[in-house]
């Protein structure tokens, strides 16, 4: 019933001479002990509320100050000793300082804080590295083992600033800058003239294993002569030795061009080359311009004087 039912028309007295005009008249307040008590309680509550608010604000301010002034990160992991020693083992030439630039281990990092998986990934992302392993050797050592790519050839490329830069070519065709190699070791490597594809590009380098095999056999059978090899041209070698006409051309410092068949046994071809060289030397050692070992069953020698002999 309360709040339900309808009253037709309004009944409130508003406007002039309404009782509401009396409500605003500033006459002296009638006091009573109860009213005084109520006012005191109200004031006390208000005061308590203000103090509570002030206390809460102070607490929040204090917490913010404490958190902001804390310099050391909060220790979340279990306590462990800091890494004190790095054991670096490589089958190549990479130096210790290179390792420091790759793994970027901060001083004071504890054994358990080291993310060995991320570290292994970072190492294997380096082109000179074939594989890497990172191990914790407790109580405070980290062992890093690296397997490196071996250089087979070198390449001269044009850098971003237009300067000619030297790159290393590995047995699997990977091209990399090369860190830690002795200058003399790099100087002994022949240059590579890569196969140029129909679109003008030279990468990826394919079939480099076969080239590396030729160099290895030559280094073994004729080390003196091998040292005179200056350029290995893959102009007519696309990387697939089984294709017809795939040849590897070697240019010596004396300007002699030697053509090897990519599919034929390099040992036999080098034996034939040895025979030809000795025969020519016995005939007064006239200057040769081109020796073609890729012909089936024979070899052709072109002399500087234009004469051509068959062996």
């Amino acid at each position: 019933m309360i709040g339900r039912g309808t009253s037709k028309g309004s009944s409130s007295a508003d406007g002039s001479q309404s009782w509401r005009e009396l409500a605003g008249s500033p006459r002296k307040r009638v006091n009573s002990p109860q009213a005084r008590k109520r006012r005191q309680v109200k004031l006390l509550k208000l005061l308590t509320a203000v103090l509570l608010l002030a206390g809460l604000s102070a607490l929040v301010y204090w917490l913010i100050t404490v958190v902001q002034s804390r310099e050391e990160p909060i220790q979340l992991s279990t306590p462990s000793r800091a890494v004190e020693q790095l054991i670096f083992d490589t089958d190549g030439v990479l130096p210790d300082r290179w390792l420091g630039t790759v793994i970027r281990l901060k001083q004071g990092t504890t054994m358990m804080e080291v993310d060995i998986h991320a570290m292994k990934q970072a190492l294997e992302n380096e082109p000179q590295v074939i594989s890497a392993s990172v191990e914790r050797v407790f109580p405070s050592s980290l062992k890093i083992s690296i397997k490196e790519r071996q250089p087979v050839l070198r390449m001269a490329v044009q850098g971003r600033d237009g300067q000619t830069e030297q790159r290393i070519v590995a047995r699997d065709g990977t091209i990399y800058t090369g860190v830690g190699y002795a200058r003399s070791a790099l100087a002994s490597l022949p240059y590579l003239q890569p196969h140029q594809r129909s679109d003008g590009s030279i990468r990826p380098l394919r079939g480099m294993e076969r080239v590396a095999e030729l160099l290895a056999v030559a280094r073994q059978q004729q080390p003196e002569f091998y040292r005179s090899w200056q350029v290995i041209s893959l102009e007519h070698y696309s990387g697939n030795p089984s294709l017809f006409g795939e040849v590897i051309e070697v240019r010596t410092r004396a300007g002699l061009r030697i053509i090897f068949a990519a599919a034929t046994d390099f040992g036999l071809q080098l034996d034939r080359l040895q025979v030809i060289r000795e025969h020519v030397r016995a005939r007064g050692n006239p200057a040769m311009e081109r020796i073609d070992l890729s012909l089936r069953g024979s070899a052709a020698v072109q002399f500087r004087n234009g004469r051509i002999s068959s062996f």
């Binding site: 309004s10 007295a13 001479q17 309404s18 005009e21 009396l22």
Partner: peptide
Amino acid sequence: RTYIHHIQ
């Protein structure tokens, strides 16, 4: 005197 209600 003052009005309390105007009842329509």
